[in-house]
């Protein structure tokens, strides 16, 4: 579904990504973790071309991101993305947030888009808030709306960029519940997160990044299993993050 091949990216002289290679197969849930500044968010943003990269290629469902002939808006409309800071559109109501791209990008009728949007809102348990504006919702609620907004486009894969990092602790689980449900339904997911509980529960594979390199790319069982088989940096990171 997604194949990342030799991706390199520089900000000026500073190399943010170095020879990144990995695959995400259909139906797979891949968790990407690593210390801050390791390039994991940059890598996931490269997958739908929100961040350009200078070398290598990413193939999403047969379409090359690096190919200048690729219609990027069209490709992005098939790849759902959820951001750390939700990024709902504050000037629109929740319903409008859920329908605007369906109508303007996919050309669905207002009735069709609204029906789909409200069904997804129901699914994330927020039907009562359809007419409100994003500012009237809590962080956790906004993030659930953001997930519904991405799902409304019928994506072939979902990308999550630290979806729970900006949330108050008591709101993390409501968002993770939605994501777990999504994973269990067979959605292909690539997920940058520090929630190791989530990784243990639903991930097929775990990727660990440090300083722009992919250090580990292994199954969940390997990643959380025998630590002596892991890279020193991975052990160090896990020992810090799993203490709590």
């Amino acid at each position: 579904m997604i194949s990342i091949k030799n991706v390199n990216k520089w900000y000026g002289d500073f190399q943010v990504l170095t020879d990144c290679n990995t695959e995400v197969k259909k139906g797979e849930v891949v968790v990407v973790c690593g210390p801050s500044g390791s390039g994991k968010s940059t890598l996931i943003k490269c997958v739908n071309a929100l961040e350009p990269f200078q070398k290598g290629d990413i193939i999403v469902d047969g379409t090359s991101i690096a190919d200048p002939k690729t219609n990027l808006p069209k490709l992005r409309s098939r790849v759902g993305m959820v951001f750390q800071h939700f990024e709902l559109f504050p000037h629109l109501t929740i319903t409008e947030n859920l329908t605007i791209a369906q109508r303007k990008v996919l050309g669905r009728s207002e009735a069709e888009a609204t029906k789909k949007g409200l069904a997804l809102l129901e699914r994330v348990g927020l039907s009562a808030h359809a007419k409100k504006h994003p500012g009237q919702l809590s962080g956790g609620q906004q993030q659930r709306v953001a997930i519904a907004r991405a799902l409304a486009m019928d994506p072939i894969v979902m990308l999550f960029d630290e979806p729970t990092s900006a949330l108050d602790p008591e709101m993390v689980s409501e968002v993770l519940d939605v994501m777990v449900q999504l994973a269990n339904e067979g959605m292909t997911m690539m997920c940058v997160t520090h929630e190791m509980g989530f990784a243990r529960k639903v991930a097929n594979r775990v990727i660990f990044m440090d300083k722009g390199n992919i250090i580990e790319d292994c199954t969940k069982e390997e990643f959380f299993g025998d630590q002596s088989a892991r890279d020193e940096r991975t052990q160090h990171f896990l020992s810090k993050i799993l203490q709590h």
């Binding site: 069209k74 992005r76 409309s77 790849v79 993305m81 951001f83 303007k104 990008v105």
Partner: peptide, 27 residues
Amino acid sequence: IAKGQMGAAQALGMTYGQTMRLIILPQ
């Protein structure tokens, strides 16, 4: 307007023109 809004609109498949007209300029 925060850059994230631009990213979010483009991630939904909007073109630059649609993003400006529907998301950025109204705000």
